[in-house]
Design a protein around this nucleic acid. Structure first.
Length: 418
RNA sequence: GUGGGUGUAGCUCAAUCGGAUAGAGCAUCAGGCUGUGGCCCUGAGGGCUGGGGGUUCGAAGCCCCUCACCCACCCCA
């Protein structure tokens, strides 16, 4: 029979990495809870239209990266490529705007994008997604970055940099696009191929280009930052001010823009040089028009997502503490009759217990106990049964003693050792 | 979607110019003690050399196709 392999870009997550992901989630949950966020789960599969409308029809995500297919009844459905759309949909569908002035939510789960895999990039990847609805002021923007720094501090993440910028509101961005386009028009021929398409689709992304030629051509270009309306300017300055009060260090990157259509005003990215090309592991921003666009009331929103696979690449967590582990070895099949009684008793006493489910030589069983890194081996054989005892071998010291076979004293003794 | 690199045992890697039965270490299993792990010793199992086609007397190595992985572009978390 041929073996079946996993799908490209999809992974099995084991042991150490899984432990790391759990640790990250645990720390994030702690601070999310302390700052009043509620967890929710939203579906992995949604109507395709939800993402087309929220993320933007012209974005790469929608145009070529979504897992979209028809369900058996013929409807077009899509595996979520990001979390915000679903959370916004849920917020509107539950009419939370009617009962809460401010809504703070987070969700944890996997997202799907049909991209070519590389370092820190998979087709199924996990995110912690955080969203706040109902506050238009810059204080909440700063609070989110403080939240991020609390989480990263506790995880002892070093070598990261928070970059912030503003992309303005719809009006000042629209105006700036005209200013910028008339500037870049003359230089269009000299831009790289990618930037030529950007000029048509999403001109602001030209600022993001890493190619020297494009960097050079836009060097003395007008910046969105200089063309902001009063309100956006004040918002951003207050935001920077609050960050100082929260003691969150950031870098203002005037060229930072985001690929999703819905962002307004504040945007930010957290980057690490240790990640290779996919160096942003947290990113987000404000999206004041999105809830309305999605059929809800005109409620402002802001949020961010943590890429868990990327974050786990730069997190070091110590080895998890192993439970006290006991291995029971049986010398012969007659001794095996005692298995059920002994195993039950250990489990009831919260002690991790192993035994060889197949009858093997004692030597083989002891090797297995060693491989399992057991703290103790219990040996049961003819001699023990005759004397109504069990032998307890300390696997770390090699010391071996006898205990009455009702295990009461034995369990008391070994429980002290871990 | 586009480039570059890499595919040999469960893992890490050998195999001269295209040459004979594709090897080693680790891991696994068994034995060395008829009731005792680690260290040591002995032995065993494990490969369609990613897959398919071609060239050749002969292919792990050359050619073509394909798949997967890694890295980068693009995009993004």
């Amino acid at each position: 029979m041929d073996k079946i392999s996993r799908l490209r870009g999809f992974r099995d997550i084991w042991k150490d990495e899984l432990e790391k992901l759990r640790k990250i989630e645990e720390v994030a949950r702690k601070y999310l809870n302390l700052l009043g966020f509620d967890e929710l789960k939203v579906p992995i599969l949604e109507k395709t239209e939800l993402f087309v409308r929220s993320i933007g029809e012209t974005t790469d995500i929608v145009q070529k990266e979504m897992f979209t297919f028809h369900d058996p009844s013929g409807d077009s459905v899509t595996l979520r490529p990001e979390a915000t759309a679903g959370v916004v949909r849920a917020y509107i569908e539950a009419s939370l705007f009617a009962t809460q002035r401010i809504t703070k939510l987070f969700t944890i789960g996997s997202m799907f994008r049909h991209e070519r895999p590389q370092k820190g990039r998979f087709r199924e990847f996990n995110q912690i997604d955080v969203e706040v609805f109902g506050s238009k002021g810059p204080l909440i923007d700063a609070e989110l970055l403080w939240l991020i720094s609390l989480i990263l501090d506790e995880l002892k993440v070093k070598n990261f940099e928070i970059e912030v910028n503003t992309v303005g509101c719809w009006e000042c961005r629209k105006k700036f696009k005209e200013v910028f386009l008339s500037y870049i028009e003359k230089k269009l021929d000299h831009l790289c191929e990618d930037c030529k398409t950007r000029a048509r689709r999403n001109p602001l992304r030209i600022f993001d280009c890493k190619k020297d030629e494009c960097l050079f051509l836009t060097k003395d270009s007008p910046l969105l930052f200089e063309n902001l309306c009063e309100e956006c300017k004040i918002h951003f300055n207050k935001f920077l001010n609050y960050l100082i009060k929260f003691e969150v260090k950031v870098k203002h990157n005037e060229r930072l823009v985001r690929g999703l259509d819905y962002y307004t005003k504040t945007v930010f990215e957290v980057k690490s040089s240790a990640l290779g090309a996919q160096n942003a592991f947290i990113a987000g921003g404000r999206y004041d028009g999105l809830v309305k666009e999605m059929g809800g009331p005109d409620v402002p929103g802001i949020g961010f997502a943590i890429g868990l696979e990327r974050l786990s690449l730069i997190v070091n967590t110590g080895n998890p503490k192993e439970n006290l582990t006991v291995f029971i070895a049986f010398v012969d099949d007659k001794a095996r009759e005692h298995l059920f009684r002994l195993v039950k008793q250990f489990v009831k006493s919260n002690i991790r217990v192993f035994y060889d489910p197949d009858s093997k030589s004692l030597k083989s069983q002891m090797r297995y106990a060693h491989a399992l890194n057991a703290d103790y081996a219990i040996i049961v054989g003819e001699e023990e049964i005759k004397n109504n005892i069990v032998s307890l071998r300390n696997m770390k010291t090699g010391e071996q003693k006898s205990y009455p076979n009702d295990l009461e004293y034995l369990i008391k003794d070994i429980s002290y050792t871990k």
